[in-house]
Design a protein around this nucleic acid. Structure first.
Lengths: 213, 213, 213, 213
DNA sequence: AGTTAAGCGAGACGGTACGTCGTGTCTTGTG
DNA sequence: CACAAGACACGACGTACCGTCTCGCTTAACT
């Protein structure tokens, strides 16, 4: 539902839909907001956050890099974290769900994508900051939760499809399986810093989806 | 080895060994550092970080709460994060490894402890901040890695013991199993915010260590 | 010319002309600096410096008393001393030059004013500090020199007028006379702490401008 | 009497006499204070104060330069200013009073000495700081007053001798004359920064002691 | 000769001010 | 209205200095 929402736009009358996409019913008086500004800000945020981290990135920096004034940023997002969260969202491509016909094939594709994202995703180091803030800010927390929930969908689709195909037993615990798979990636990425590659993926698969033996 | 190291003592000549355990060969001239101060600072940090989070906790607050001057803190730790990391360490009790005789029993104990720690640990919200900093600060990163590595030991002990007892096949992939188990806890705790309880633990166990059926 | 300059405005594009009097050619974009803040800061500085001395006056104190943030102060003055110097300037009323018609009358007025200022001037204890700083800071030094030079003008006016009136010989050494008169006041005020009153003034006059006898 | 006193030695039982010269009546038990330390500290103070000014000179600097610990300094002087004042005293040679037989000759010698001291005296920039402190610290003030008073003596001697010789009228106002002469030097040195040389001295003399015409 | 009181270098300590920086808001003038 | 520029209040940061306080050692004078 509200999965691709812009976060808490300060005074956006259409705060629960995609920003700047208010239908013709709400013509908004006065000068319309610059769409280039939106993009420039998000781009600047993604770049800067990747380069120096969220803490190392000041809002003045973002404004300057985007060629925009701070007020223009705060008119759209109510806080630094709200901006970063949306920037993260904007930088996250959706998984494209390809049905290869077999669980094995689907997983290959999915895990390959996971490796790619966890390995090089520029905004990956940004998550911890948002997590911290979300511990003390309910708004950020629910938006972040949304974002996290969405990222579970592709694997769930793959697993339920496998159950329908009778490749997995019907009593398979889909949710916790997802927790474990994504959890292992997250853990390696954020905590242990062990390598995340094909080999790791294969070992992971061998545990959760043991070969027919 | 360097697992119980004090972090980055600013000018500690024995920075890479257990603190204050330099042999009698280094008599350390001048007034010795106050041990009460050490303790007071760490305690104040743990308390404050739990109450208001790292970001909400100022170094002046810590100094005041500890009855200590800021200089005294910075003489021991070179940054806020270094302090917090050591405080986290000081607040983390070691797991006590009890051999119940069976994998099942060992896991019950271990997972119970995990639930307790991930559920209520006062310093849990502190991890994300450290993770973020560690992305851009090599010193913090390696210390944090140490800390993380240590927390893997108890589960590894349990699993290798189970292999010796022939409760698990000898080719069991211990490392990735640990990644998945702890990873699932981490993921729920930090990202999805799903409940972490006995039921979750049971489902997790059912996947990684399937009942004999 | 640059006698009524505001001191070392940190990034004032018109630092060498009267402040805020740049012609209409430089419209100064952005929010203009608050004039009330200027005044509040100077007033707070004069008050505090009089009460507790420069050393005893912290910039935080000034900010609080002025109802202003420290950044606002440092945006205008680059150091505590620069602020104090401008505060001194702002607290120094110009001498009003009254032509009484005779040297004797002019001197009475002038010296009376001198007694009043050296006796009770709230900012008098502030001079030594500025002098010290000016020994090691070229910027402060030249500004202070300006200020000092200005204070010589009234007496010079009186003396040249007396020469024109033939009350003083045309070869009178005006400069050194000024040095001696003001110097004697300064010396008593700062060094010897002897009383500065009408009697002292009379004795001084008797030496420099001996009665016709 | 107390003119060449060491200032406020912290716990010196003979605080009102020259330090370390307590008579044999008070033999002081324990290890005697190091005389080299005394000298080293004073020398370091004079040097540092000349180089970087009092404010720019920290007590740690003095201790290091003198090869002495801070405690050793504070055992002798109760504050930075007390130390500086004594250092100033130690660096000030007494005027040697030579009777040339005429006022003119005496003045030549005296004024020459004045020019030399005001021109190059390393500790000259140190006075303003002491003056400032003395505004708020009674102890420093009285010690400084002593020092200042002493420096008036030579000129007074010269003038009274001239009166005895009938070179000056007996009703000459010696005190204010001194104020003016020294005052003019002080004023040029500290405030106006005009040159202090033979020419200036000559003009000064022409005003206070006009040639017989 | 042994005791003892004090001096000494080193450096930690509490307190306090410094000047800088970042956040989110507000205020100008211009489109 | 939006926008660029930039001032503003608030508050944390990490550094520096002052004057005090241990430490363990050294140095004489007193027993």
């Amino acid at each position: 539902m509200s999965t691709s929402t812009t976060l808490v736009a300060v005074d956006d009358p259409a705060a629960d839909t995609k920003s700047n996409v208010d239908g013709p019913g709400t013509p908004r008086r006065g000068r319309p907001r610059s769409i280039e500004a939106d993009q420039a800000i998000l781009t600047a945020t993604v770049d800067l956050a990747s380069e120096v981290g969220i803490t190392g990135m000041s809002m003045d920096d973002v404004a300057q890099r985007a060629g925009v004034s701070k007020a223009t940023i705060y008119r759209r997002w109510c806080s630094k974290e709200a901006l970063v969260l949306d920037a993260l969202r904007s930088a996250t491509l959706p998984f494209d769900d390809v049905d290869t016909g077999t669980l094995s094939g689907d997983l290959d594709l999915y895990v390959g994508e996971l490796i790619r994202r966890f390995g090089t995703g520029p905004m990956n180091d940004v998550l911890p900051h948002l997590i911290e803030v979300s511990c003390h800010d309910e708004t950020i927390r629910s938006s972040l939760d949304d974002y996290i929930r969405v990222r579970r969908v592709p694997l769930r689709t793959i697993l339920t499809r496998a159950i329908e195909r009778d490749e997995l037993p019907s009593e398979t615990d889909v949710d916790v399986t997802i927790d474990m798979v994504i959890g292992a990636f997250v853990y390696r990425r954020l905590l242990s810093h062990d390598t995340i590659d094909e080999h790791f993926a294969a070992r992971l698969r061998a545990i959760v989806f043991p070969p027919p033996s």
